[in-house]
Design a protein around this nucleic acid. Structure first.
Lengths: 177, 177
DNA sequence: TCCGTAGCGGAATAGAGATTCCGGTTCCGG
DNA sequence: CCGGAACCGGAATCTCTATTCCGCTACGGA
């Protein structure tokens, strides 16, 4: 691939993140192309359709989360779970502008499953370490992640202090029976 | 208003809830009209535009929540807050199919403000009654509500046991400092 | 530097869906 | 039971945007 083509590829992804974040799914390919400083034709040379472009964005975001899981699993102590949750929160915040779009389409099942398994392992370790109570289940953690996503990415709501929210909920997971 | 017109008005609202819930914002007026058993022209006689129709749905849903607040305020003991949170959760669940659409548009500021005030009062009472810890703030409760909305209305995620989630988070609010 | 080719821009096409319009129908007071 | 105001259905119109197409341009190997 020629140098200029590579540069355009990157610019288009970046522009798509920006424009989709600002205008939602309503954003047009024309606007994305303009933001990237290219013509629409160029966008279509790299991405077969608008859907394909959004899917690629989703794939990249999922990859980030998967990498975070690997990292957390590498921690020897029982704090991998808490770490991971903070990383997820940060990632949601970083992508909050366009992530709501991604929510609306099914994620790659294989990658999702891998993440779920990792979180299961981390939850077991956290229980063993006493970071969370023994009654904590994998689905409780999945619900917490969904909640983080919800409060961080909510389109119109006032910004929420999500680290504080996470701390409070973790206290609940430690205490509740 | 003629009897048949009233009936159609109700049918259209019902159909809009169904269709918007199933197909998202992408749903067409034509489909809503078909589901209601009327022509598109009839829909436009009652609602100036698709936006106006969705706004009306939002207004009705907000009214439900406002009523729940009044009810909770009428409780003399300190359990009004917990009650209200469960009612909100149920309302979110009832409207989950189309509520994600409503999220994307600003709610009536006056009604939102009234709800916020009510929740502030209920939070103060809950602190006094020891239902939640003294460090609990109004914004903590607002965040919890946003989280409930997020996990219940998430478009694609697996269904979450939200009463359990609520219980856990309330435990956190009682315990965290 | 020169040529062939990968790339590019953006006008034109195609299709979807919101909104309008008006000739027919259905209520309902008298 | 009648007349006419309210209503209704749904074809036609209007707009907006995804996607295609093709003549023109910019790399980069020889």
């Amino acid at each position: 691939m020629r140098i200029d083509a590579q540069r355009n590829h990157g610019r288009i992804l970046e522009a798509a993140r920006e424009v989709l974040g600002e205008s939602g799914a309503h954003a047009s390919m024309e606007e994305i192309a303009a933001r990237a400083g290219v013509g629409v034709g160029t966008v279509y040379r790299r991405f077969a359709s608008k859907d394909a472009l959004i899917d690629e964005l989703l794939r990249l975001a999922l990859g980030e989360l998967t990498a975070a899981c690997e990292l957390a699993l590498a921690r020897p102590d029982g704090h991998g779970l808490e770490d991971l949750l903070r990383t997820f929160g940060q990632s949601f915040a970083d992508h909050s502008r366009y992530a709501s779009l991604l929510l609306e389409r099914p994620a790659d099942p294989a990658a999702s499953a891998r993440i779920r398994v990792a979180i299961g392992e981390l939850t077991a370790r956290a229980v063993a370490a006493g970071t969370v109570g023994p009654q904590a289940r994998l689905d409780d953690v999945m619900a917490l992640i969904a909640a983080l996503r919800g409060i961080i990415q909510a389109p119109s709501a006032a910004p929420v202090d999500w680290p504080r929210f996470l701390t409070i909920h973790l206290a609940g997971l430690r205490a509740a029976g």
